[in-house]
Write a protein that binds this DNA or RNA. Structure first.
Lengths: 212, 212
DNA sequence: TAGATTGTTAATCGATTAACAATC
DNA sequence: TAGATTGTTAATCGATTAACAATC
């Protein structure tokens, strides 16, 4: 770790939201913001925002606040959204296609370099300009191309096997959409998008709310 | 609140994972599990598991552990996954289609009763057996049908307006896939699936890892 | 300079872990 | 009964909030 002290997950997970909101402010031509004003937009306390940011350095100026554009850049740097990332999608069914077509990625430095599937009807078709390859070509593809992130959009039965292939192929991060908890080396990062868990949480809070 | 003491979000967000893992155990015909064994599967401490569960009642038995099937049922009950929920999807582009086609929902009591879009090329087409309706029919549809959950798969510019329509139409929960923070009445629950935030978090941890 | 607002330390609050008596 | 494991209280740890001196 850079600063010899570990920064908590909670802080990290707030950074993308900070950045997103700063982007919105930029589009509205707002150039500066105080932690107090920002706190009103975000629903966090001003104190928390200042604490969070000061994990990484003093980006503000006393008596002035924060420069929106500069803070946006600093957070981009902290997150590492400063270069291109090569991404492959394994599982080219509906979810894989939705990911491939999510126009946001292109503008944010994510380049989809490969899509894979085992379904013969999908192999060879073109999705968002990318030809779907046979899953059996994945190992070879990973050996020949430096890939940063693997996206798993397979069913839950195949996900672990795919994760292992991605790991062997040298990816550094796995974005997992399958409803399973993957087991991989600790030097590989897994970020889960567990849609069913998310929906279940929503259902809980919905029911809770009506009971109050 | 039922028990006059608020249960923390952190606890609630672990419940779907508990339930999912219990489902896996059931499929393996495992009938009982101790908090210690379960902790090894989950990567939580046994203490945390027991604490979490005891927020809702004593589901275990001293000297024995927990009955897998019973605990699964109890958690389903706590979450509210015991009846059917009517769901409409607003925005029938790739992400909306992926949600509609996610076969999991059908088996878990979620029934997609409507899909909407403004794109004339999509209106009238059938997705996973559901005909896409014109967005302008949404108000009328919500007035005539009891809908529990609205899924927002529009772009970020339209999301807030859609949320307001859903709110007026009486939905209790919004599952939001647009990269914005929605403003709604506090009796409406919003669960965000912020894909870009998730990806940014992954990128951070990937870069961190290589620096250590 | 005076006013505003940060950076940072201290205080509080909440969540996790440990310990153990209760009990199956 | 003896052994195992829960339910639950107490201790610890970490994260959030409050306060204020530093400073632009």
């Amino acid at each position: 770790m850079r600063k010899s002290e570990k920064i908590s997950n909670a802080v990290i997970r707030r950074l993308p939201r900070y950045r997103r909101r700063l982007g919105e402010l930029m589009r509205k031509d707002i150039t500066r913001i105080s932690s107090k004003e920002f706190s009103e937009i975000l629903g966090y306390t001003a104190s928390q925002i200042r604490q969070d940011l000061n994990n990484f350095g003093g980006f503000g100026q006393q008596g002035y606040g924060y420069n929106v554009k500069e803070l946006h850049e600093q957070i981009s740097k902290i997150l590492g959204i400063t270069r291109e990332y090569s991404v492959v999608i394994v599982g080219s069914n509906h979810m894989g296609q939705a990911i491939a077509n999510y126009s946001y990625y292109k503008s944010a430095g994510f380049v989809i370099t490969g899509m894979f599937d085992i379904n013969l009807e999908l192999i060879g078709t073109e999705i968002s300009g990318i030809k779907v390859k046979d899953f059996s070509e994945l190992d070879d593809f990973l050996a020949k191309n430096k890939v940063d992130v693997g996206v798993i959009c397979t069913n839950k039965e195949s996900a672990q096997r795919v994760a292992e292939k991605l790991q062997k192929g040298g990816v550094k991060g796995i974005w997992n959409f399958a409803p399973v908890d993957l087991v991989v080396d600790e030097n590989i990062q897994v970020e889960n998008v567990h849609l069913s868990d998310s929906l279940h949480t929503l259902i809980y809070f919905m029911n809770q709310d009506s009971g109050e």
